[in-house]
Nucleic acid binder design. Structure first.
Lengths: 331, 331
DNA sequence: GTGAAAGCGCTAACAC
DNA sequence: GTGTTAGCGCTTTCAC
């Protein structure tokens, strides 16, 4: 592959001049510049990124480590990040930790080794170790889930409040025994959504009961089993708050197999306004999170910190919006 | 950030020895090795990837350029690629071309600049230019959609056959006027699915009619408008073959708004077995493509070609499977 | 305005 | 088995 010195000798100038011409730095004689461009074109020259980054000691690349590529919530964040990054000439590399602390650690190492300019991640758990990043002065922004220490920028959603509202809505619709299916303990969004649910139970003057709560992986299969378990006990719940959109697939399947009609028999509200929410029967009531905006804000924060490492860490909390559809109505 | 010479001086050895010890190359005196590891640990040393890659003239990184991150079909491919790559120590960077030839070109350039070991891509159109890649000796594997020249490995699905089967199934179920909503002209999967549909029309001895076909972006909005257009003409279709899962969302919304009952009034079969297919009413009949397998095969092919650039290019064609559910039945 | 030369951090000959 | 040294391709002083 052609190198800068190939271009230089073809154009009859020094490598320094080629570099200057191609980067539009300082002024280069127009005539020489033209020769340089012609030679570069002719040779199909494309600068060697690693070499440049090695020399410059910086790369215009951001790493985005998300916990589940197959979850539309996270891919929407990715789009937000990408749009902001592209606009200022940064590339984004997307890594899928797949809710595994191991893979997450591996990708954090890759980010360090590749010397990316900064990292945006949705921590798989509260034990996620970003120390390796911060020790090396790498800017980190956490999205969706907070990091334990407060030296990072974070972009979160007031998910506890949203969960409370959603559960309160179910009570207001006349459901008596609202249950909750949430993610694993230690995953902050799962804990918060459960806490919000409990807030609502308390406000509604209901007795909170562990019988009505199940925790599983943020996946359809676990949620399906949990729903079957929940519904097959005496005095089962007549409504369910479901903590994510993968889970609600399992929940709806289970309800269907148990012959329960959603809405009339069992009210359902789930997190995340997925594209197919209006297609199920009855249409699914959801808590819509501003995923794309989380991405854009996170990217802006990260870029700001890359530019100025002394900025104080900020936490941005966006709010979610309850969208009432048929699944949370008895009518 | 600590460099290899920091480690070397701390351990009282040369940088060469550090490199050897850390990479487990040739043999190093156990005692020295121990000192090296201790020093590296102490300093929080992490090798500089760009520097290493520059020297080695190769990086264990694959680029995967997909045309839509929000489409589960492509994210499933991504998981397949990643699983294979991880297993042999390669990282995967995921890039979203968003069906835009421009973004695709930009990412191809990034891949070249970063000197990744190889590229897997789903070309946005038949005009995708991979010449820049191949000119530089970069291995390329096309997935989902073929590339015009036959010097590349490709992993495709026999989507024409699958479309024919799906349309034939609709005729067999007693639908008389089967229509087709497919993607933009020039996108090979869109063209092939249309061709397969026409094959079925011919086999069923129906007169093929442009009235029954619509082409739009591979998105819900376009498909929704197309459906409204299709259904509001005289003698509208009584069944629809839909070329992708984003589109079918628009189709089902439109049908619902027009008061048509899916299955009884209008049969529907769509490409891609999405997670929510069984939740809509009636459950959605689909053409299930082996997306994950496409990813694994593509990654294996790419790795093989990286190891041996002289291999002849191969084309792997996987087959899709029709899954009959309620949406394609009048009962 | 341009070129010579140093050096980013690493690995791989090559000596010993 | 270990150290010395050259050099990957680039940018950036520093002279001129």
């Amino acid at each position: 592959m052609a190198t800068i010195s190939d271009v230089a000798s073809m154009a009859g100038v020094s490598t320094a001049t080629v570099s200057r011409a191609l980067n539009g730095k300082s002024t280069v004689d127009p005539e020489l510049a033209a020769r340089v461009f012609a030679a570069a074109e002719e040779l199909g020259y494309s600068p060697n990124g690693p070499a440049r980054n090695l020399r410059r000691q910086e790369a215009a690349v951001l790493a985005l480590i998300i916990s589940d590529v197959e979850n539309p919530f996270f891919t929407a964040i990715a789009r937000g990040v990408e749009d902001v990054a592209q606009a200022v000439g940064y590339s984004v590399v997307l890594c899928n930790s797949d809710e595994s602390g191991d893979k997450e650690r591996r990708y954090i190492d890759v980010a360090i080794q590749e010397r990316v300019a900064g990292v945006i991640l949705s921590p798989t758990s509260t034990t996620t170790n970003t120390k390796r990043l911060t020790d090396r002065g790498m800017p980190v922004v956490a999205v969706d889930r907070p990091l334990p220490d407060d030296e990072h920028d974070m972009v979160l959603v007031d998910t506890r409040m949203a969960a409370k509202e959603a559960a309160a809505h179910l009570f207001a619709q006349g459901y008596e025994q609202v249950g909750c299916i949430t993610g694993p303990a230690g995953v902050r969004t799962a804990d918060d959504r459960l806490a919000g649910y409990r807030d609502a139970v308390r406000s509604a003057k209901k007795r909170s009961s562990a019988r009505l709560v199940r925790r599983t992986e943020y996946k359809a299969a676990g949620a399906k089993a949990a729903t079957v378990g929940l519904m097959s006990q005496d005095d089962p719940p007549d409504a369910l708050l479901v903590a994510n959109s993968s889970m609600v697939i399992g929940v709806l399947e289970a309800l269907d197999e148990l012959g329960k009609q959603v809405g009339r028999d069992v009210g359902v509200v789930a997190f995340d306004d997925v594209s197919w929410a209006k297609l199920v029967d009855p249409p699914l009531s959801v808590v819509a999170q501003p995923a794309y905006e989380i991405g854009t804000v996170a990217a802006q924060l990260l870029l700001a910190r890359i530019a100025d490492s002394d900025r104080a860490a900020t936490t941005t909390t966006l709010s979610a919006r309850l969208i009432e559809r048929g699944s949370s109505s008895r009518a």
